[in-house]
């Protein structure tokens, strides 16, 4: 009986993050005597979307095996956000151009990362970190010339709700489902996981290792750019520090969501559980009138703690 439960849970690593999110939600409910509980969840879903978007990209890189990681996400988000909003310049006329410019920056940044990793053979960790700082400094330079507001259409899109649920959350939940299907059914997805389990074996089996890895880094950068554009629209403009938390958060939602940090396995659904969990923890601490300092401490400890526990479980099996 317990063996069955165990097997069921092992096949669904995302259950933990949703379970933890549920508990935090209920604790928050107790703290506010149940007022506005559904609204809390909807708001959490809104913020969770930004974590989940970058999380999808980070999940793909981490699933592609040891050493693969994208640390340029904050830089890409900030630069793409600034340029996209700058092109819009507060009007709907520049909406398409702005979004296109942001996405192109994402593509260029991803190509740059791939060049460093595959062309110059720089370890991804250090290559993407250095590249991220280059993008960040481009954003700093750009920010001197631009203090634009996002296009009103994009702003209303970023806050729009359907049946009480944020529209962008629904869109990216659909994307997550597609990624999930791709990982288990498509040649690309199976290749990513195979490379993550054993890159050498994957190469010997004739898989297109370089092309697959290149695509993974491109996808991660484009998703970071999209997150940067949407976050800028949602916050009423880009800010130089808007990406700061996303370096850790992008990795945290992947790890907390049940994706193995060792690669070769992915848990797309878990991204959402973890993203909602991390956001609800902040809400809970806010409700308890805890300051920003303690919020950071608790978030950091949760991430280290869950990682230590999850790794232990992996080793046991």
């Amino acid at each position: 009986m317990t063996g069955n439960v165990r097997a069921w849970l092992d096949a669904r690593p995302w259950v933990w993050s949703f379970g933890a999110a549920l508990i935090v939600w209920l604790v928050t409910a107790l703290a506010v005597q149940g007022r506005g509980m559904l609204e809390t969840l909807a708001v959490a879903l809104q913020f969770a979307t930004f974590y989940a978007i970058v999380g999808i990209g980070q999940m793909l890189t981490i699933a592609a095996g040891p050493g693969n990681i994208d640390l340029s996400i904050p830089g890409v988000m900030t630069f793409a956000g600034y340029v996209a909003i700058g092109m819009m310049n507060g009007g709907n006329a520049g909406l398409a151009a702005g979004i296109a410019a942001g996405v192109v920056i994402g593509l260029a940044a991803g190509a740059f990362n791939v060049g460093l990793i595959q062309g110059l053979r720089i370890p991804p960790m250090i290559g993407t970190l250095a590249a991220g700082f280059v993008f960040q400094s481009m954003a700093i330079a750009y920010s001197r010339t631009s203090h634009a507001a996002p296009a009103p259409l994009l702003v209303s899109f970023s806050v729009a709700r359907v049946l009480g649920l944020p529209v962008i959350a629904l869109i990216f939940i659909v994307l997550t489902v597609l990624v999930s299907v791709a990982l288990s059914r498509s040649v690309f997805g199976r290749s990513v996981l195979a490379i993550g389990q054993n890159a050498r074996a994957a190469r010997l089996a004739g898989l297109a290792v370089r092309r697959t890895l290149g695509f993974v880094y491109l996808a991660s950068a484009v998703l970071a750019a999209v997150a940067g554009i949407l976050l800028s629209a949602y916050s009423g403009g880009a800010a130089l520090d808007m990406g700061t938390d996303y370096l850790l958060m992008s990795i945290a939602v992947v790890v907390l969501g049940g994706t193995s940090i060792a690669g070769g396995q992915a848990s797309p659904a878990g991204l959402w559980g973890a993203a909602i969990l991390l956001d609800l923890v902040v809400t809970m601490l806010n409700v308890m009138r805890v300051g920003a300092g303690l919020r950071y401490v608790v978030t950091g400890l949760i991430i280290i703690g869950v990682l230590a526990l999850a790794k232990g479980r992996e080793q046991a099996t």
Partner: peptide, 9 residues
């Protein structure tokens, strides 16, 4: 990941 988590702490 551990040192990034620690950075928040």
């Amino acid at each position: 990941v551990v040192t990034l988590g620690a950075s928040f702490v």
